[in-house]
Design a protein around this nucleic acid. Structure first.
Length: 924
RNA sequence: GGGCCUGUAGCUCAGUUGGUUAGAGCGCGCCCCUGAUAAGGGCGAGGUGGGUAGUUCGAUUCUACCCAGGCCCA
């Protein structure tokens, strides 16, 4: 027989699982196939009656294409859902979208090229609805392309009439339960957009403001603090002179020390620690301290308003600091949140003589009609003329701006509707319930806890167009707010039937029960509230509109999974409403992830030009590469992505894919029922790798349970690269290819490979959703009725082949193998050998346990080292550290033309003069 | 400015309850193979552990400050 013909007698790998993935063309075909099979539907129905694990989707905003943040978030969710499904849970996943709110309004106004007052509300709302629905469908297709399994045909949308009705219902219930109140309160207000802004709608940016020092002369009580001083002035510092007309107090800190300082003809009271800085700032070089006291002693003082004829009290506030200013802080409860809080404590008047356009009202006296920004100059002049101005300059500092129009905004007291966080002990209950929720990572508990502890009441009203109306009516006669079971019932059913637009179509009477009269004055005429509800309320009650409303889900659910910014957003709004409405948290656990950064750890932005979009990654590499990236990073902190990182993932993917391919390729003639070899009759190395594989399964399963996907990734990857590719499979080639196809040795290897493949493909499946599916379909002996790996069960651990002792021995053998490799490399570099099969290795080992082990395993060492011959030699006990030495010589005999190993038996058979005796047996 | 968080080889991650020469895989360099072949294998070189100061016999691991970056808030 010729050399070439011997090749035909080998069992070389065969598989239709291609080396080249071509994910960008292959994945869409799988998606089509999954859709045709209704895989999501099957996934849910397969687990009917099983224990539930519901991950509740936080609704992304229906605006624009999805970005990496969306991709990360949805992929993490999908990994969880796929894993839990394989574990046997019923894990339905209903996706949602947040459809109302300012972003849609902004985009739409931009597209239409008009402003808030230039369009009919009903016409605008129709357009807004179309706009949101357009992006729902854009994003839905983009999410599907990522391989996310979800109830795409039946998502939840906050603009659905049923959802809107639930918003009305929840608001109504909270109202009737006493959580909602109407109050005058300063809020962020954009005078340009003429609207209140939510906290999330405020951006901080540099702004140039006046920086002035103003004296408030003490009119009474001075003797108590500074006996005998006669007269003095409290010095304050502010960057918003326009808030001075609304001044209602001056705040100090009781524990600070205050000095009375003579400056020229006047005596100023300033916090002692800030004295030098203030004097330098107002340009005073000479001054003398004439008295000193604690802030506490200032409490009974009254001071004269610097602009108008009135008096202000001194109050205490923790927010007075020594960072800047004078230690005396001007308080305008109508124009600042902290001021408001202080004012509430002291019963101060919430005064804000500024209208919605940012102009002073007639209550502001001589400043009436001026825009507040423009009034600063006039106010400063006025102070100067009254002799109360000590210094005036300008300062550039961080200042709130409107996220839409980018103009500086103001704090302005307006009538708003609030959810009282301290009503009925809500805050305290929330703080307690937080402790019973599992936060992943744990620091999330601390984070949301301190936020809830400090958060102000929730302003629920918005002066906008696109949202659900506040279901409140007012008596025309007396202004009484009307919210009753009766009105709510009418509103709720009208909204459920016709959508929230009905509020703006029908007259107020449509929502008034027959014969109803104002309980306060008996009035019969009513008008509707014009404001809408904050969109955070929309998504915040999804636990009622979705979890509680859909039988397949259920309230509460197992997990919320969002970016860490949602500690202030959705987690909190969901928690507060859920506790108020149902008395408990809507989730058992909350998992958060970080944000996407570029390769340098900087945030992505158009202007920096470092944006990487998911669509680009999918087009170039495929969704599985993106999914693998998601799994590879530690999402508990910010994650990075760059071309370099993606390149590495492509390499890693290829390694995993080729490992699967090699396993598949060597199982083409293996029938599990017919050919499996029981564990006790397997080759030792096969038992060893099975032991390792079971260990991998245990470690990976545990990592999935902890949502530690990057551990999963590293374990799988290292197993493929190290245990399999460079070791086990490399050694196995000889046996697989050259032994008789049905020999026990080869079947033993295949039995192991089949088990490895089953496990590997399944533990990859939640991550490599597409690749695992393709590989799985190629596995021999798979039950025909299972249409998808995603409908299969998680592997059950088989302890039969697990052996600590065996793994322990092998750890030592592998150390020897590493020594042999080094020696082989030296021989190779010296040109003595090429392929390691050209070598004969002699191991000299000192007497001891290792020697005994090597002698025991001597027969298999040549296979283990992939050389032709191995001899183990005992040497006398050597010095420490020189237990082992390896000698490499050319192999004995001739190279077998079939198995390529060197053997003295080559030439021994007349019929087959070019092959070794072992191969002769196989060929004959 | 405040709260929370991050900073270990080019990359992704380990680890150290303070203790001998800080690990893995990839990438990189050199080499081998050509029966996983747009694959496979071997060897090797890479880290002042963000910086400074302190506590300690000893710090990457503890403390303070600083720098860089992130989320949230002001």
């Amino acid at each position: 027989m010729e050399k070439k013909e011997y090749k035909a007698t080998l069992n070389l790998p065969k598989t239709s699982f291609p080396m080249k993935a071509s994910l960008n063309t292959r994945e869409p075909l799988l998606l089509e196939n999954w859709a045709k099979e209704d895989l999501y539907g099957k996934m849910v129905s397969l687990r009917k009656g099983r224990e539930k694990f519901v991950l509740h989707d936080g609704p992304p905003y229906a605006n624009g294409d999805i970005h990496m943040g969306h991709a990360l978030n949805k992929t993490l969710k999908d990994i969880v859902v796929k894993y839990k499904t394989m574990r046997g849970f019923q894990s339905p996943y209903v996706p949602g979208w947040d459809c109302h709110g300012l972003p849609v309004e902004h985009q739409l106004f931009r597209e239409l090229g008009i402003g808030k007052h230039q369009i009919d509300r009903r016409v605008f709302r129709e357009k807004a609805r179309d706009y949101a629905l357009r992006y729902v469908s854009v994003q839905r297709e983009q999410f599907k392309r990522l391989g996310i399994f979800a109830d795409w045909g039946n998502p939840y949308l906050t603009l659905d009439p049923a959802y809107q009705a639930k918003i009305v219902e929840c608001f109504g219930k909270l109202y009737l339960d006493g959580y909602i109140y109407r109050g005058l309160r300063p809020i962020h207000w954009c005078a340009t957009c003429e609207t209140a802004l939510a906290e999330a709608e405020v951006e901080y940016d540099e702004h140039r403001s006046p920086s002035i020092y103003v004296a408030f002369s003490v009119v009474s009580g001075l003797d108590k603090a500074f006996p005998g001083l006669g007269e003095a002035e409290l010095l304050i510092w502010t960057t918003t002179p326009w808030t001075l007309p609304a001044n209602r107090a001056v705040a100090v800190r009781p524990e600070f020390e205050y000095s009375a300082v003579r400056v020229g003809a006047r005596i100023l009271i300033i916090a002692k620690e800030l004295l030098d800085r203030v004097m330098a700032d107002i340009g005073v070089k000479e001054f003398g301290i004439v008295g000193s006291c604690r802030g506490k002693a200032l409490e009974k003082l009254r001071v004269r308003h610097p602009l108008v004829e009135r008096e202000s009290p001194i109050v205490f506030s923790e927010h007075v600091t020594l960072d800047q200013g004078t230690g005396c802080v001007h308080i305008a409860p109508g124009h600042g949140d902290e001021d408001y809080q202080v004012g509430r404590r002291y019963g101060l008047d919430v005064f804000a003589p500024v209208n919605e356009k940012g102009e002073f009202t007639k209550e502001a006296g001589i400043f009436a009609g001026l825009k507040v920004e423009d009034a600063n100059g006039k106010i400063i002049e006025h102070l100067r003329s009254r002799g109360t101005l000590l210094a005036s300059r300008e300062v550039v500092h961080s200042y709130p701006h409107c996220w839409r129009c980018k103009n500086p905004i103001i704090f302005r007291a307006t009538t708003q509707w609030f959810l009282g966080v301290d009503r009925k002990g809500l805050r305290e209950r929330a703080l307690a319930i937080i402790k019973s929720v599992q936060w992943i990572p744990e620091r999330g508990q601390n984070r949301i806890g301190s936020m809830i502890e400090n958060r102000p009441d929730w302003c629920l009203s918005r002066q906008r167009l696109w949202g659900v109306p506040l279901p409140i009516l007012y008596c025309e006669a007396c202004g009484e707010a009307i919210v009753t079971e009766g009105t709510l019932q009418l509103i709720r059913s009208a909204v459920a039937e016709r959508g929230a637009d009905v509020w703006f179509i029908e007259p107020a009477e449509a929502f008034i029960p027959h014969g109803f009269a104002c309980p306060s004055c008996g009035g019969k005429e009513f008008r509707k509230e014009e404001d809408i509800i904050d969109v955070w309320f929309d998504s915040g009650i999804s636990h009622q509109a979705v979890l509680a409303a859909r039988a397949e889900l259920g309230y509460p659910c197992a997990l919320y999974l969002e970016g860490s910014d949602q500690h202030r957003g959705w987690f909190q709004t969901s928690l507060l409403t859920s506790i108020a409405l149902r008395g408990d948290a809507p989730f058992s656990a909350v998992l958060t992830h970080g944000f996407i950064m570029d390769g340098e750890g900087k945030k992505m932005s158009k202007s920096a030009g470092n944006v990487i979009a998911p669509q680009g990654i999918i087009d170039r590499y495929g969704a599985d590469i993106l999914r693998l990236w998601v799994a590879s990073v530690d999402y508990s902190v910010d994650v990075r992505i760059s071309e370099e990182i993606l390149d590495h993932l492509v390499d890693a993917y290829r390694r995993i894919r080729n490992t699967l391919r090699f396993l598949l390729g060597n199982l083409y003639d293996f029938s599990p029922e017919r050919d499996s070899v029981p564990c006790d009759r397997m080759e030792e190395i096969d038992r060893w790798i099975l032991s390792r594989t079971e260990r991998l399964l245990a470690v990976v399963t545990n990592a999935y349970e902890r949502y530690d996907f990057c551990e999963v990734y590293h374990q799988i990857y290292n197993f493929c690269a190290v245990d399999l590719s460079s070791l086990y499979l490399d050694i196995l080639k000889d046996r697989l290819y050259t032994r008789a196809a049905a020999s026990p040795e080869r079947r033993s290897a295949q039995t192991a490979m089949k088990r490895i493949l089953d496990i590997l493909v399944k533990i990859c499946a939640p991550i490599l959703a597409f690749t695992a599916e393709d590989a799985w379909r190629e596995i021999p002996g798979r039950p025909e009725n299972q249409v998808s790996i995603h409908l299969s069960d998680w592997p059950i651990r088989d302890d039969h082949c697990v052996s600590e002792a065996l793994e322990g021995e092998w750890e030592k053998l592998l150390e020897v193998r590493s020594e042999v490799s080094k020696a082989l490399e030296v021989a190779r570099q010296g040109g003595a050998i090429g392929n390691s099969l050209g070598a004969r290795v002699t191991i000299s080992c000192a007497e001891g346990d290792l020697l005994l082990l090597l002698e025991e395993k001597e027969e298999m060492l040549a296979d283990l080292f992939i050389v032709s011959q191995v001899t183990v030699q005992a040497v006398p006990k050597a010095r420490e550290g020189e237990q082992l030495s390896v000698t490499v010589l050319n192999a004995e005999g001739k190279k077998c033309g079939r198995c390529w190993r060197y053997s003295t038996s080559v030439g021994g058979n007349g019929d087959h003069p070019t092959i070794c005796s072992r191969c002769v047996e196989v060929v004959d």
